[in-house]
Structures are given as structure tokens and as C-alpha cells.
Design a protein around this nucleic acid. Structure first.
Lengths: 140, 140
DNA sequence: GCTTGTTTCTTAGCAAGCTAATAATATATA
DNA sequence: TATATATTATTAGCTTGCTAAGAAACAAGC
């Protein structure tokens, strides 16, 4: 078995295409790839703590901290100390981020369509199910 | 259509699992994830230029330059100016890297097995074919 | 109340991606 | 030959991931 014929080798290649493609798409909105994931969670529930975001995104606290900081520097969010628990910083959406919600969704779905355009509906569904298996099994 | 139910959202999650898992595996050999890809190409043909490596790995020259530099700092490779073309730096394997070849292959195939252990042989083949489609279509 | 441990955030530092810009060399063209 | 263009490598600077180590605040037990 040759290494560059393995599924993981191919997976790494496609992963790269995905990441840079997604990044390029979101940069058009003045945002970066990772930041969009945080906003997405805040659209669902505003004022979440960093640890909540970290758990939901399967990222470490420092990673989230970085992204929140840069979102803050660009006035997309603002952090406030929680009154009930002084350790917690709650992250809140600013108008500039709220305005972008629809545009982000549009771009995201457009990217989704482009990236998977070579697959039929059925194939895409199969891919989804395979990825779910990988996630639930390996992400334990 | 909700964004966190899209295939691209799931893809991002699995991508993360993949990258950190692969990294952890290779760190056990004193190498990092990206460096292993370069060594892999050099095992096939020693003395390649950075631009050749960049093209084959679908990475940019600065990315390759970084990785080659750190491989060099750890005595896995050595770079020499090409005599026929003064712009080109040819990258050569050092004994320390050659010794690791079999171990890397072993680790890689082990990771491959672990990461895709939730899939049957058939499912893995299907995944491979779907990824190939994505690669050949989106990576144009 | 004090100590001990836990949780949350933060900082520092690194790898691996990228873009943009520069230097050095080759090549092609006038 | 001289000038313009290509190519290769590099540097600087950014985002997104990580780990390790620290600070600050809370919770529990003595």
C-alpha cells in the first residue's frame, strides 16, 4: 500500500481545498473563516461564553480567545464580564455583525453549492452520512 | 436550510479531527504533520526543488519554504543550490530522515486504519471516490 | 475563615496555511 | 548586448489550529 494512494492522503488534499476556498469566500465579507463559525453560534444564541463556543466548535479555549479578540478588534462583537460569574466573558453581537447575518448565510450556501457541485444529490447525502460516521466515531 | 446542518459545516468539523489526529500521530516520531508530506515526496525522488514540492502538494512556495526550513533545523533534510539553475534550492534527505521512512509508513497506515475504522471497506472506497470527484472538480 | 481544587480566560510560542512584496537568477526580446 | 519579463526562493505578516503555563474568580471542605 503506497501512502499517496491512501484515503487519508486524499483527504488531506481535499481538506486544503476546502479551507482555502471557504476562507476566500468569507474574506469577501471582511471576515475570516474561523470567525464566521463563532458568529454563526451567536446568531443562534447571543451572549455565550468562550468556553461554550469552544465546546460547540470542538476547539480549544485559546483558539476561541484569538478569534473572539480579532472579531472584537473589528467591532463585530463585544465582550462583557458576566455579573453572576466573574470568570466568564460573555460575547455579544454588535450591529455590524447582525447586519451581515443574511449575507453570510447566502455566501455559505453558495460555497456549499460550488464546493459540492461535482456530486449528485444522492452522492452528497452519502458523503454526509460517511462524514457523520467518522465524526461520531473518531471524535470520541 | 440551516447552516450548521450543511455538509460543509460537517466537513469542517471532520477536517479538524483529521488534522489534529494526524499531527498527534506524527509528533510521536519527532515530526510534524506537514513535514511528513514533504519527506514522503523526497522518498520517491530525492533532491526536488521547493517549487516542485509546492506543486505536488498543492501548497504555496512560502508554505513549503517554512516546512523545509524547520526540517532543515532538525537535520532531517539539507538544501543545496542547484548548479544548473542558481535560483533553485534542491532539497536532500539526511540519514535521520531516511531511517524514519519505514516508521512513518507504519504510523501513517495505522492512522489511516484508526481514522476510518468506523467505515466498512466498501464505504471507505465510496468515500475515496467522492473525495476524488471533489478534488478534480474544485481543485481546477 | 482559610486552604485547596476547579473553572475560565489569557499569554506565549509553535506549526501550517495564506497573500504581498523583495531579491536573485534565467530567459526572451528588441 | 541591453532591457524587459519569468521564475524561484525568501521575508514579513496575517488567521487558525495546538500545548503549556499563568491569573483570576469561584466552590468545597476543614
Amino acid at each position: 500500500m503506497n501512502i499517496n494512494e491512501t484515503t487519508s492522503y486524499l483527504f488531506a488534499e481535499v481538506t486544503n481545498l476546502y479551507r482555502t476556498g471557504f476562507e476566500k469566500t468569507m474574506v469577501e465579507l471582511g471576515l475570516h473563516g474561523g470567525q464566521v463559525f463563532i458568529l454563526q453560534l451567536l446568531y443562534i444564541e447571543d451572549g455565550q461564553s468562550q468556553i461554550e463556543l469552544a465546546l460547540k466548535l470542538n476547539n480549544t479555549p485559546p483558539t476561541i480567545n484569538n478569534m473572539v479578540k480579532s472579531l472584537q478588534n473589528n467591532s463585530f462583537v463585544k465582550s462583557r464580564k458576566c455579573k453572576k460569574d466573574g470568570r466568564v466573558m460573555r460575547v455579544f453581537l454588535m450591529p455590524q455583525a447582525i447586519e451581515l447575518q443574511e449575507e453570510i448565510k447566502r455566501k455559505w450556501l453558495q460555497f456549499e453549492e460550488d464546493f459540492f457541485s461535482s456530486l449528485t444529490i444522492t452522492e452528497k447525502l452519502v458523503l454526509f452520512q460517511l462524514l457523520e460516521k467518522l465524526k461520531s466515531d473518531f471524535g470520541k
